[in-house]
Design a protein around this nucleic acid. Structure first.
Lengths: 219, 219
DNA sequence: GTCTATAACATGATAGAC
DNA sequence: GTCTATCATGTTATAGAC
């Protein structure tokens, strides 16, 4: 590892430590620099912005997810179970830094933001993330176009789940994990509907699940 | 109108003018104050933060929506048409300040933010918004609990539509308006599924609509 | 007591010397 | 690459004016 890389790594580690203990807003670039023993200007040489550090984290999270997801698929799992497993894995990897996802989620959603989920800069990481979901549903006999469309939809849904996750103050985010299971149970049949024309009466179950999740605003 | 109110109105109008011409980020509190002919400290006396001005706008948008929505309902409209009409009306009212919704949307989504959609402070405006949707579906024979749950879901969906809206650079946001129609066509039947146990084969139509909307990430 | 204004602060970001 | 100095801007403190 070259000296430059080592310093970048030091900044990253220092920033993450502070983010974890003090949160994103209360961690200043000056604080990071000071703790890392370098100047403010130097820190900005390695990271163009405070948010860029968070996106480095996000990129690493995605890489870690890809690395671990392979081992999940050894057994012959059903599609629904695969979707649940792959989503839970990502949540578990992210849990120690859940608060940071607030920054990721808001930036992802913000048009024009360089770090937006839909920006050019993030095409690569987004596509890798979508690919993971595409592989999770590879057992469903779809055209490549359909598979990509569904994987993209699942990716959007997983952004929504992240949003739910960062709001979720239940013990160990149990509600989010339950929501993942319910969502997979309800939505997986829809994947197969694209291959048959058979329909299922999912509405009542959907209603129950929504109520169970305590979904969103109470009056 | 008292002098205080007039000044607050002046600040609001000045800020909105600048937001419209320069956007939110490039408009500074100093710029607003200067243009309004008052001091920075004075501006902060009337608005606790820059974002608070945007939320005043959001509140007024909601009020205007409520005021206009009544006239929409004179005719005996079907549920689906009502949902489309009420949603399009809100989009049309918001269109001149579409860029500002970026600020609203990100704040709404941000946990802990005072302006979060789910915060205490915004319970009132949120409930009023949900009520509008509840009235749009009053023809559906639901229990009050069900009606509130569905209206809440529609409200969440309308947040998503806002998000789509602010990203939508198509001519006059035609894609968003088409999406509203498609979404209503697909989702209205689900409302009635809660009253019967009949199910409909909506999946193929859903897939076509998603493709038509060019939904989200392209590879 | 309600407004107003000026000054000051904190922090993200940048410029430029070395 | 590194640092110091500086800027821009959201926000706050505070002291006075009406």
């Amino acid at each position: 590892m070259r000296a430059g890389e080592r310093k970048r790594e030091l900044i990253y580690a220092t920033a993450m430590e502070l983010f974890r203990t003090k949160g994103f807003e209360d961690t200043t670039m000056r604080g990071i620099a000071e703790r890392a023993g370098i100047s403010l200007g130097s820190a900005y040489h390695y990271y163009a912005s405070k948010a860029a550090i968070v996106f480095d984290y996000y990129s690493r999270l995605q890489a870690e997810h890809e690395a671990h997801v392979e081992s999940l698929y050894d057994e012959a799992m059903e599609v629904e179970a695969r979707l649940v497993a792959v989503t839970k894995l990502k949540l578990e990897l992210a849990r120690p830094d859940r608060k940071l996802l607030i920054e990721v989620a808001t930036a992802l959603v913000r048009p024009g933001d360089k770090l937006s989920a839909f920006s050019e800069e993030n095409t690569d990481i987004r596509n890798r993330s979508i690919d993971v979901f595409a592989r999770a549903i590879e057992a469903v006999p779809l055209t490549e176009e359909q598979r990509h469309a569904f994987a993209s939809l699942i990716w959007v849904a997983h952004l929504g789940i992240f949003l739910y996750f960062v709001h979720d103050e239940s013990h160990e985010q149990a509600r989010t994990f339950a929501l993942v299971e319910d969502a997979a149970r309800l939505l997986t049949p829809l994947l197969f509907l694209a291959t048959t024309t058979m329909a299922a009466p999912v509405a009542e179950a959907a209603f129950a699940a929504i109520a169970k999740a305590g979904l969103l605003p109470k009056s």
